[in-house]
């Protein structure tokens, strides 16, 4: 029995421990990608979610295995939390055949349909109507799953966001919209690009509940998402949740971050959600500092192993180029 933390009933102490490791796995994965990118070992582009781990891990921990997600261009965290293995992810970033998309998708197109991850998306707001459609399937086929739809503050100014929330609401679909407001859509700050105080305030327009949560508090996110997901599962329709968070890195490659100050970055780094989660679990007596360190090391090692796996995976053959355009 947990002393101070309230969590959904299916969340065990063991789950909280694994969640801690999961957040480090996300962080180390993206830190490693960042290093390889700088060295020119990964090409194309990539968007890192370092600093945003609690909103991915906390939100997805609230789901059942049958539930589905749609993700974004900044989606490595969502992917890991929904059960993808980092070997296949790293191999994809290396463009190899053992990658999740056989090397044809890369960072912004990783999907893991078996685990219910309908995919990252290279188009801002592109996944939002897709989540609505997946929720429609659940309703029409009575499959009982809920779709958790991730997107960013930038996407909330896309037409697809407004059309989708309205449609999901009038049809009472089992979908929960979660906006990871990391304060910037590339260089455009949310203050500059959006007049409302909270993106969650927009829920009013679509006749659904809107909730603001601390995006660095994995427990608060988990509880809020859990309530919204169960509400949706019972047929009461969608909720819009906004998690206030911050991306530590730039938007993608070659971002000099001229649009924000180093002081602002330092302020957010001090609020590191992973360390906060660790302190909470120690305080609860769920694990010791030594155990926490050990889990962190294990996560680091898993990423190192993923790199080895990726490096050893073959390049796709030129013959594979024309495969899979049509079913």
């Amino acid at each position: 029995m947990l002393k101070t933390i309230k969590v959904p009933s299916h969340i065990t102490e063991e789950k909280l421990v694994s969640l801690y490791k999961e957040m480090w796995l996300i962080r180390y994965f993206d830190e490693k990608v960042d290093q390889f990118f700088a060295k020119g070992m990964i090409h194309g582009t990539t968007h890192l979610c370092v600093g945003q781990e609690p909103s991915a891990a906390g939100a997805i921990a609230a789901l059942k295995d049958i539930d589905k997600i749609t993700s974004t261009h900044r989606g490595h965290g969502h992917c890991i939390s929904k059960g993808a293995n980092v070997n296949g992810m790293m191999a994809e970033l290396f463009g190899r055949v053992d990658g999740y998309c056989k090397g044809k998708g890369g960072s912004i197109h990783i999907a893991d349909l078996e685990k219910g991850n309908l995919g990252a998306n290279g188009i801002v707001g592109g996944g939002i109507p897709i989540a609505v459609g997946a929720a429609l399937t659940s309703k029409m086929k009575k499959e009982g799953y809920v779709v958790l739809c991730f997107f960013g503050d930038g996407a909330s100014n896309e037409g697809s966001f407004h059309e989708s929330l309205n449609l999901a609401s009038i049809w009472d679909l089992p979908v929960v919209f979660i906006c990871e407001n990391n304060q910037y859509g590339m260089s455009g700050s949310v203050k500059e690009m959006t007049r409302v105080e909270n993106i969650a305030d927009r829920a009013v327009s679509y006749g659904m509940p809107g909730k603001v949560v601390d995006g660095l508090d994995a427990i608060e996110i988990m509880n809020t998402v859990y309530d919204a997901v169960e509400r949706a599962r019972q047929g009461h329709g969608p909720t819009l949740i906004e998690a206030k968070t911050y991306r530590w890195k730039g938007h993608s490659k070659s971002d000099a971050k001229k649009y924000r100050t180093r002081e602002e970055e330092e302020e957010w780094r001090k609020k590191d959600g992973i360390k906060r989660f660790r302190d909470l679990l120690i305080e609860e007596g769920i694990f010791t500092e030594e155990k926490a360190k050990q889990l962190q090391e294990e996560a680091k090692q898993e990423v190192e192993d993923a790199v080895k796996f990726a490096e050893n995976s073959p390049q796709p053959s030129i013959e594979s180029l024309l495969e899979d355009v049509y079913a």
Binding site: K68, T70, L113, L118, G126, I128, P129, I130, A131, V132, G133, A134, A135, L136, T137, S138, M140, K141, V147, G159, S160, E163, S164, N166, L167
Partner: peptide, 15 residues
């Protein structure tokens, strides 16, 4: 946009 996207999501999940 939502009509087309909802159809994509529904198709991807078995409809």
């Amino acid at each position: 946009s939502a009509i087309a996207g909802a159809a994509v999501g529904a198709a991807l999940t078995g409809m």
